[in-house]
Each structure stands twice: as structure tokens, then as C-alpha cells.
């Protein structure tokens, strides 16, 4: 699979990464190389194989429904780039 500049641009947008126009070519080449490499997987016959999402066979553990987290807003917001009145600020969101 060879990626075009346009495809790289689309992927970068999906991933919210600003890529400079002059870097698109380079990324297209590198990503195409990586994809060509991973396509070695095609050699394997995986018909009927169950995908393995977790390395260990186990079930989800359940947590009792008890609130146990104190308010740590001041601590958390001390490391935030922009807050006001306890809110995180971002450029205006349009719905």
C-alpha cells in the first residue's frame, strides 16, 4: 500500500497532527515503507483464527459502586494550560 500526499494529509487530520506541507512527501514515503513492511502479514493464513486482543485470558474485574475520589481540582488545574472559574478553557466550540 503506497500512500499519497493527500492520504497522509487526511490521516494527519484524523489524528489532529499539524504536518507542514513540505513534510508531507517525506511522511508519505516513510509511511508507505512501513505499510509495505507490515504487509508481510498477508503471507500468513489466518482463516478461522480468533483475533487476540489481550495477552492473557481473563475477565474484567468489577469495582464496587462506591465513590472514593476526593476533590483534587486545585492540584489538577495547577498543571493546566488555561483555566478560569474552575473550567478548562479552549477556543470557542461551535455546535
Amino acid at each position: 500500500m503506497s500512500l499519497s500526499r493527500d492520504e497522509v494529509e487526511k490521516i494527519a487530520h484524523l489524528a489532529r497532527l499539524a504536518v507542514r506541507p513540505e513534510d508531507l512527501e517525506g511522511y508519505a514515503r516513510e509511511l508507505s515503507g512501513i505499510l509495505a513492511f507490515v504487509e508481510q502479514m498477508d503471507a500468513a493464513d489466518t482463516e478461522g483464527v480468533t483475533p487476540m486482543a489481550h495477552p492473557v485470558e481473563a475477565s474484567q474485574r468489577l469495582r464496587p459502586d462506591e465513590p472514593d475520589e476526593p476533590d483534587r481540582r486545585d492540584r489538577f488545574q495547577a498543571i493546566a494550560p488555561s483555566v478560569e472559574a474552575g473550567l478548562y478553557l479552549v477556543p470557542r466550540v461551535i455546535e
Binding site: 500512500l3 497522509v8 490521516i11 494527519a12 489524528a15 489532529r16 497532527l17 512501513i34
Partner: peptide, 18 residues
């Protein structure tokens, strides 16, 4: 994200996104 992440991280994010 573009300025905060280096090139290899961005490459992998893009491969994974794809």
C-alpha cells in the same frame, strides 16, 4: 500535537490511525 510530539511518535500515530 504537531509541535509537542516528535517525528517518530507522529509516524506511529499516523500508521495506527490508518
Amino acid at each position: 500535537r504537531g509541535e509537542g510530539f516528535g517525528a517518530e511518535v507522529q509516524r506511529r500515530i499516523m500508521v495506527g490511525t490508518y
